[in-house]
């Protein structure tokens, strides 16, 4: 970086005042570069670690696959979707499992924030010149990338559920997954930062996020009453619904997605959810205790 070179030459000459000015100007110029570099390196770190832990990749795919096969085949004999008899349960459940893959990966990956804080790694990141917002973004983009990769790998199994890869509306699926991954990671980051304990993090995640997933329409539709309301207020429903729309593509049957929605509306809700999570997490991160 040219600014830094100048800075050094000045230092060697011992021109303190000049150096302060040079470095002030250089730092103004390089603030953006600095932030991007911080974000980039945190993403790279998570990806490097991810690639090194093959068992994690496999585990995060095999577990949902078994879950899908076991629950799916058990339920398929009794499950009848109102108004859409042709929809088989394995097929109905599949997009929900894709979201589950994303959810579990996001939870698992952002949990490392707690480890990073306790191990001292995060301290070194926080005393570096990058802003805390960049730390949140870097960590969450890294985790979200991993979640997206895992979700996409699972999507490749969609022919097993009777979907054709060529019939899937990929842009819709990816738009939905990208926003969902990022939102869940940002939320996970905030919870991890806030609780600062692995046990607490697990409790919150299994008492809040898992039920939200179950009630999102991933496992069964919420067609009336309280369930329908819960579903409408539940951000996860919009993720499941949007991914399901994408996976079905043109061949979307009646009654499998949120009733009054459209892909655009669902994406908008997810973006709004992401923004709220982001504001909360970044805000938390700036509180220096």
């Amino acid at each position: 970086m040219p600014g830094q070179n100048n800075q050094q030459t000045a230092k060697k000459q011992g021109e303190h005042r000049d150096m302060a000015e040079v470095s002030a100007r250089a730092s103004n110029r390089s603030v953006l570069a600095q932030e991007l570099s911080t974000i980039g390196v945190l993403i790279r770190r998570d990806l490097t670690r991810f690639v090194r832990e093959r068992s994690r990749i496999v585990g995060a795919l095999v577990q949902p696959l078994i879950f899908w096969l076991v629950i799916g085949s058990g339920m398929s004999s009794t499950f009848r979707l109102p108004g859409a008899d042709s929809v088989d349960y394995m097929e109905y459940f599949f997009p929900g499992v894709v979201v589950m893959v994303v959810l579990f990966t996001a939870i698992f990956t952002t949990m490392s924030v707690i480890e990073d804080r306790h191990s001292g790694f995060l301290q070194a990141v926080l005393v570096a010149p990058g802003s805390r917002a960049s730390v949140v973004l870097g960590k969450c983009l890294g985790a979200a990338t991993i979640a997206l990769v895992q979700g996409s790998l699972f999507l490749l199994l969609s022919p097993l559920a009777g979907f054709e890869l060529t019939a899937i509306a990929w842009p819709t699926v990816f738009a939905g997954l990208c926003v969902t991954c990022l939102a869940l990671c940002v939320l996970g980051f905030g919870v991890a930062w806030w609780l600062d304990s692995t046990a607490g993090y697990h409790v919150v995640m299994s008492l809040v996020l898992l039920p939200l997933w179950i009630l999102s329409g991933a496992m069964f539709p919420g067609d009336a009453g309280v369930l329908a309301w819960i579903q409408r207020l539940n951000p996860m429903s919009y993720a499941v619904s949007l991914v399901r729309r994408g996976i079905y593509g043109q061949a979307l049957p009646e009654g499998v997605v949120l009733m009054s929605g459209s892909a655009a509306l669902e994406l908008a809700v997810l973006v709004a959810f992401l923004s709220i999570c982001l504001a909360w997490s970044v805000g938390l991160c700036y509180r220096r205790r």
């Binding site: 830094q4 790279r44 010149p129």
Partner: peptide, 10 residues
């Protein structure tokens, strides 16, 4: 290298 990037050295 990670630390270098945190200080904008690439």
């Amino acid at each position: 290298k990670l630390s270098a990037s945190l200080y904008g050295i690439v």
